[in-house]
């Protein structure tokens, strides 16, 4: 997987805005991405130092479509901790 394919988009929500205080930034990442790849991608793209990467697989929601149950796609969320003082400015937009 190419580095450019790892990070899909930043997640801007109430919760992630709060996390910014702790120098933690949250991304939606490619399903197959590993912590190492995420670390490298964030460091290269934003020119910062990453100390920690936590990933979570967010399960797709199941919905009922008539009689069938349909599951939406799962995706991977990465919470990236930066060294104190490092900032990602791009984060304000969606």
């Amino acid at each position: 997987m190419h580095l450019y394919e790892v990070l899909r988009r930043p997640l801007v929500t109430e919760k992630t805005t709060l996390l910014k205080e702790e120098d933690k930034y949250v991304f939606k990442v490619a399903n197959g991405a590993t912590k190492h790849q995420i670390k490298e991608a964030v460091e290269k793209t934003f020119n910062v130092k990453v100390t920690k990467v936590n990933v979570i697989i967010v399960r797709g929601k199941t919905k009922r479509m008539g009689r069938r149950e349909v599951t939406g796609p799962s995706w991977k969320k990465a919470i990236v901790g930066l060294e104190p003082g490092n900032k990602i400015t791009l984060f304000e937009g969606v």
Binding site: V12, T13, E14, T17, E92, V94
Partner: peptide, 16 residues
């Protein structure tokens, strides 16, 4: 704004 409850968006996000 998606991702925020009403009245909870920070100023920077709202401005954007």
């Amino acid at each position: 704004i998606s991702g925020f409850r009403k009245g909870k968006a920070p100023r920077a996000v709202l401005e954007q």
